[in-house]
């Protein structure tokens, strides 16, 4: 059962990752990337890493992807120029490094053993991470909330409309 699910989700990841590259429309690519990230999250669940799975969905599939899509929409890309295939220098370098990475991954695949998975039962579980966050790492945790508060104030302060200020200053 687990094996079937693994192959199912691995298939989803690989096929949607390929679609990211082969789609011409950047928006479709981004949506395919969302699917790939969801597939990776499902793989994490199969490995009993529930916290990582949740974070994967929340941060990558949620926040980061929304940012991507926002930017793609704001840039308002011209699709006709994108349809042409360029053989640029960066493309060649990228292909070289990509195939290098693929070669390493394939050659190294046989070296992984079961021993590497010998971790305690509750390692990385939501409960143990939560406990750590609210005991040992409590001060940094609270500091992070202050950091986020500062970021929110800053976003509101810098993004406010100028006209409002002109109106307030006028009388």
């Amino acid at each position: 059962m687990e094996l079937i699910l693994f192959y199912l989700f691995a298939g989803v990841v690989v096929s949607s990752a390929l679609l990211v590259v082969f789609f011409r429309n950047p928006l479709s690519s981004a949506l395919a990337l969302v699917a790939a990230l969801f597939g990776v999250a499902a793989l994490f669940v199969l490995l009993h890493a529930y916290f990582l799975a949740a974070i994967q969905v929340l941060v990558y599939a949620g926040a980061v992807m929304v940012l991507f899509i926002f930017i793609i929409m704001m840039m308002n890309l011209d699709l006709t120029t994108l349809r042409k295939i360029h053989y640029s220098f960066t493309g060649i370098v990228g292909a070289l490094f990509g195939s290098y990475l693929a070669a390493i991954l394939i050659l190294r695949l046989g070296y992984f053993s079961e021993a590497a998975r010998a971790t305690p039962e509750d390692y990385g579980s939501i409960a143990s991470i939560g406990k750590l966050l609210f005991t040992d790492y409590q001060v940094p945790f609270e500091m992070t909330s202050l950091l986020l508060l500062v970021a929110i104030i800053g976003a509101v302060m810098l993004a406010k409309k100028e006209a409002k200020h002109a109106a307030r200053q006028a009388p």
Partner: peptide, 18 residues
């Protein structure tokens, strides 16, 4: 702890950027 120092630096820097 380096984490606390880093977060402190971030709070300080973020406020000064804004």
């Amino acid at each position: 702890d380096l984490i606390v120092i880093f977060l402190g630096i971030e709070i300080m820097s973020l406020s000064s950027y804004i």
